[in-house]
Design a protein around this nucleic acid. Structure first.
Lengths: 337, 337
DNA sequence: CTGTTAGCGCTTTCAC
DNA sequence: GTGAAAGCGCTAACAG
């Protein structure tokens, strides 16, 4: 049907042309044992014929695909809005590639895992990296019955906690954010957090609270909601009405921080003079706002690299040294706190 | 070596258990011709044994992989900063999946295409979608000699213009942005554009200039540079010093717009009263700034979907109806213009 | 160093 | 409707 269906040259043809057996041709090309002369003949033949080895055949023969499924267990419409996930996925691809592995993207709708499951199998991957996970009984079961290695990015739910994972140290991030606020002299501190059902958000809150407690400070309040701008805007409004004395807020995302800043400016509050703000993410929007945001920088590249490395070790040796890895989230001081 | 290397059950075992031949088992599972009774027996056997078809073997046998390579021809460090590309890639994965295709991510360093090339081949994909492309002789050649279909996202360089592509109508976007500024009564209009070597940026400029010309307006100036915040900041400084009368600017990205807004506020200029701004992208940062940005919304999801569909048609029929598709970039009116 | 011989696990004619 | 058999293109023992 298409112009592309034309026969592509096989190893057999190369071998014939070079006047050797397929086995020899295979070795010559792969750098196995072969005389210099043979090597040259075979390479020449391969070049002339424009030989490209068939990846599928190689995989079937060797039993290795050097491929890992990168799965996003997320509703499709949500993926569009999640900058962290998008960047993570791209970074995973980069890291995987640099280790000689290929990433195959698969979307697993937690609510309709039947075909996600089949998709997972259709990849034929050697391993799975869960780039995002929303627990659901079916997905959990699917993962448990998978007989290839799995690495999580982000702490998996407790029932799945025997799986290795790489994550950002959200607790420590929340802790350090609070400390920054305290260190610059603030005492009336509040938090605007993310979804209370996400461990990511809860961990940050725990760290935040621990830091406050360690200095004998009782946070004004903590308002949870989405990680988005409107939540920041609304929560800040509620916050300032309830606690006009607030002089610092820890926003669990840069978007939340941006929203809070908008509300603050409506109320004529100066940042950081009247109220200081520390965000979380250090995405583009952190430097887009005015004043520029002091925030906790998610080490997405490191996380991606570690996850890829973990998988690679697993695949190569059947072992991995670190089963859990948490990366620090450094504070980036700009103008808002 | 690993616990995962255990033998996974094959079709042959299922067939044996069901007491039929492999051929029959295959058909029963695939929904080919088989009696109701056989179908049941085989499915039962498959379930009991936890049979999962081997994707690689199926591919070798059918000659189709139902897989498409999604390539980013970009330096790795750049990928980390490019929100558009990250989102595009995720969206492509979603769209591909919904059409029954799998996306394999490959990074092709334009400066070191030897192994990118080999990576491309190692994917064994049925087609390739170029998600981003920086022309280089070697990459161009590699693409030309590929004997599988290629679809570009973003207009390819002229030498490669026989390839089909999907893109955003940057020209029209620039045109509409200028029109918005003119329609709200501005006459001293300037542009802060992206890299002058990128067609994306040049197209927006052309549209912008055309709109101005159509109304007899001569733009104050056009300052090109990166799509990032600092460029916006610096360019705006230069602009305001050279043309203090400026009352409107078209920023070719939301980041540029954010930077410009920061400078404007340093100069005590009010937005939009003193100077109106229209951005481009409609990413998260558009609503993070204060006032919220009026901007041109990139239809990333549509672009991704169209590219995936194009590839799917290509693969299924060897044909595609539209060889070039440009999507409108709608104006989103908020508070800055 | 090289050739012969089996597969890898599945699909798919082709007969029955 | 079902089975036997021939591959898909490559790698990997095993002899020589």
């Amino acid at each position: 049907m298409s112009e592309f269906i034309r026969h592509s040259t096989t190893l057999r043809e190369v071998a014939q042309r070079a006047g050797v057996s397929m086995a020899t041709a295979s070795r010559a090309l792969a750098g196995g044992s072969a005389s210099q002369k043979t090597r040259e003949k075979v390479h020449a033949a391969a070049d002339e014929l424009g030989f490209v080895p068939n990846a599928t055949a190689r995989r079937l023969s060797t039993g290795r695909t050097d491929t890992v499924a990168v799965v996003m267990a997320e509703k499709p419409q949500f993926i569009f809005r999640d900058q962290f996930l998008s960047m993570l996925v791209s970074q995973l691809a980069v890291s995987l590639n640099s280790l000689g592995l290929l990433g195959v993207l698969v979307l697993a709708d937690p609510e309709n895992p039947d075909d996600s499951n089949s998709f997972l199998h259709r990849t034929g991957a050697d391993g799975v990296i869960m780039a995002s996970y929303h627990s659901s009984k079916i997905l959990d079961d699917a993962l448990r019955s998978l007989n290839i290695p799995v690495v999580f990015v982000g702490r998996p739910p407790v029932e799945l906690s025997y799986f290795p994972y790489v994550d950002v140290d959200n607790y420590r991030g929340g802790y350090d954010a609070a400390m920054r606020l305290i260190d610059i002299g603030r005492r009336n501190i509040a938090q605007i957090s993310g979804p209370s059902e996400m461990t990511t958000s809860r961990d940050r809150s725990d760290g935040f609270n621990a830091a406050c407690a360690s200095r004998g400070i009782v946070p004004l309040c903590s308002l949870s909601g989405k990680f988005e701008v409107d939540h920041g805007q609304e929560a800040m409004r509620a916050l300032i009405e309830a606690h006009p004395e607030v002089d610092a807020v820890f926003a669990q995302s840069d978007s939340i921080a941006a929203g809070a800043m908008q509300t603050l400016s409506e109320y004529g509050k100066k940042i950081p003079e009247d109220v200081a703000i520390v965000g979380f993410d250090d995405f583009e929007s952190a430097t887009a706002v005015n004043p520029k945001l002091t925030t906790m920088a998610q080490p997405i590249d490191k996380v991606a690299q570690a996850a890829a490395k973990m998988m690679k070790d697993y695949l190569d040796t059947g072992e991995y040294e670190l089963s859990k890895q948490l990366f620090r989230v450094p504070l980036v001081v700009r103008d808002s706190a």
